[in-house]
């Protein structure tokens, strides 16, 4: 199952390796990983998309939460959430017709043309996985030269109350203090 994990970690050298190491130690592949600063100084949010069954993901999250510099580790997948990725796409556009066709696609997908030469264009697209995948898929017929994707960032929707502690999907190990399996 595809899981999106969100980990709040101190912005210090080496801390990311510690988290990544927990995945590689189990032979788990990280599909995408992004890290960025947060509103709070010194803290970064790391978003990891990975395949794995629930029990293994739970285990990895608990181990992440155990790290001294990790403040919170949770899976955002179980609650309504918004996920976005950005892609920069270098595509051939050799004829005026091709350029026009590509421009149409750009409009439909609300993408942007960020660079252009006499036979190529660079496009910028963002959205969820399906949208970006589909956009790139449609451009394939023009011949793609290079695609650079950022990986996903995710955040829970406002309707998903992440603050009430009894939400069972709060997977931060530190939150599961005692439990009866019913």
């Amino acid at each position: 199952m595809r899981n999106t994990l969100s980990i709040l970690v101190a912005n210090e050298p080496g801390e990311l390796s510690r988290i990544v190491g927990l995945f590689s130690a189990r032979g788990y592949n990280i599909e995408t990983i992004t890290v960025g600063t947060t509103l709070e100084e010194g803290w970064s949010r790391c978003t990891i998309v990975t395949e794995g069954d629930d029990s293994v993901i739970e285990q990895i999250l608990k181990q992440c939460a155990r790290l001294a510099r990790v403040r919170e580790a949770k899976s955002v997948t179980k609650l309504p959430h918004i996920e976005r990725e950005m892609a920069l796409i270098d595509v051939n556009a050799k004829t005026p017709a091709d350029r026009q066709e590509i421009k149409n696609l750009v409009d439909i997908f609300r993408a942007k043309v960020v660079d252009i030469s006499h036979d190529r264009m660079i496009l910028e697209a963002s959205g969820n996985k399906e949208k970006v995948d589909r956009f790139i898929g449609l451009l394939e017929s023009f011949q793609l030269n290079e695609v650079a994707r950022t990986g996903y960032v995710a955040i829970n929707r406002l309707t998903a109350d992440t603050r009430s502690a009894d939400t069972p999907v709060r997977m931060s190990a530190k939150h599961e203090q005692a439990a009866v399996n019913t």
Partner: peptide, 10 residues
């Protein structure tokens, strides 16, 4: 797995 766990300790 997790969804089966009822967190008692709020």
């Amino acid at each position: 797995m997790m969804s089966k766990l009822k967190t008692i300790q709020k």
